[in-house]
Design a protein around this nucleic acid. Structure first.
Lengths: 251, 251
DNA sequence: CACAATCTTGCATAAACGTGCAAAACGTGC
DNA sequence: GCACGTTTTGCACGTTTATGCAAGATTGTG
């Protein structure tokens, strides 16, 4: 067990929820609460969080689950999103997967464009709630608090009855060998169902997602039609993708 | 339970409404009023609010009234909601229908209570997204922008596979002759499906909803188990409901 | 003034905390 | 291989903190 793994988790949790309990952390990694507290103390010393009785909270205490996650890489995601929405054309039908990057994309969709959008993310749905020309289909299911999205049989069934021209696939990791991958099994099932019922897949990936793979494979590299990445990403990293026929878009 | 969570809630509440009651705070987080008052005292000491008899008010005198004007019934709904959530017991499964009153109810549900909640309202879902003990089931379907909720075949199908002990039924009008009624046909279909699959119905109605009827009948008067209304509503208005066996709760 | 609601204070308790210490894991140099 | 220092972790100890309850003071209402 690497302490750094726990640090990563703590940072992610703080970014996502704004707070973390020492007890939860201990349980999650099967370490003593003493160790959990030591971790929190250490991160607090570096300024990554603020220590409170019972656990720790994020430094910028504002906002709940959906908003803060955006804030971490907000600028990069907003830039990528602006590039990504250019791939959308009026009249199309879309799947928009969950994740903060996809929320940024939903926010970047112009109000003037007419679309049919199906999503399992409350954040995406909220972002599109005011788009009067968007026909919004909410994919139901059991809400997973950690993922911020709906998963389960019900979700899969609804997806199986739909078809989209474009899928904005959120991914925990993307590389040219394994393709798009996810951390969670149930989440991966949903993503695979979307992949199956879409004509083309778009993956928008921040730099930290590239060349990292999560355990569950969602889409093979050659299934990814478009890849939107930061302009500073090295060309060598993307060379393999091009061989699979993926179009690279830099923002 | 991190005390910090309550602090954030208090600050948000003060920013939104300009005041907060110690009793409400205690109920919201299922802590004693002593703890609630201690919280308020602490924030007052730091200068985040000013302590008054019954609760606390915001320091800046210009906070609050902005949003109140948008929804004149906001206070009444919050008050009714606090009364309504007392009808909920830990471990129950609920349907929560759409509508601003039901969003107020979702916001008033204590974090300490364990529930299974199915809803077709994005607002209700968002309000419950952080209730860690609530198993949240999102009813999918086509999102209707005017209603702020999901309707359609898919929604009906999902509801038909569920059952709830309590249904918080939103209604466009309630009277003792026609029962609960709705303005929209598709919305009414969803409500009827929920009624069919619930053991007991609770209607929380602001004064303007009473004694008015919308075109589509959703639930007959004798199907309404509980009716939560403002304390100022005339007894004569409610007499007819009592004959149907409806329990009246005044707030 | 009477009465109820609200508040403060003090106390008890359980949870969370920090510290010191020892065992284990690890690398390093001989 | 072996001796040494470092790091990490869990455990035991005493301390601090949060919370609810009770008792008495204070405030608002009629």
């Amino acid at each position: 067990m690497l302490a750094e793994q726990r640090f990563e988790f703590i940072r992610a949790e703080l970014a996502a929820k704004g707070r973390i309990l020492a007890g939860d952390l201990a349980a999650r990694f099967s370490v003593s609460e003493d160790t959990a507290r030591r971790d929190l103390r250490e991160l607090a010393k570096v300024g990554d969080c603020r220590r409170v009785y019972g656990g720790a909270v994020a430094i910028a205490p504002n906002a709940g689950p959906l908003r803060l996650r955006n804030d971490l890489l907000r600028d990069e995601k907003a830039r990528l999103a602006l590039r990504a929405v250019k791939l959308i054309h009026s009249g199309q039908s879309l799947f928009i997967d969950s994740g903060s990057t996809n929320i940024a994309i939903a926010n970047a969709i112009p109000h003037s464009i007419e679309l049919t959008v199906a999503t399992n993310s409350l954040g995406v749905a909220a972002a599109l709630a005011e788009h009067s020309l968007v026909r919004l289909i909410m994919l139901g299911g059991t809400y997973d608090r950690d993922l911020g999205t709906c998963v389960g049989q019900e979700t899969l069934r609804t997806i199986s009855q739909l078809h989209a021209e474009l899928l904005f696939l959120g991914s925990c990791g993307v590389d040219a060998v394994h393709g798009a991958t996810a951390f969670d099994s149930a989440e991966a099932d949903v993503k695979r169902a979307m992949v199956k019922n879409s004509s083309a897949i778009i993956v928008v990936a921040t730099a930290d997602k590239l060349s990292t793979a999560a355990p569950f494979r969602v889409a093979s590299p050659d299934a990814i039609r478009h890849l939107v990445v930061d302009g500073k990403v090295k060309t060598s990293t993307l060379a393999q993708f091009k061989k699979h026929g993926t179009q690279i878009h830099r923002a």
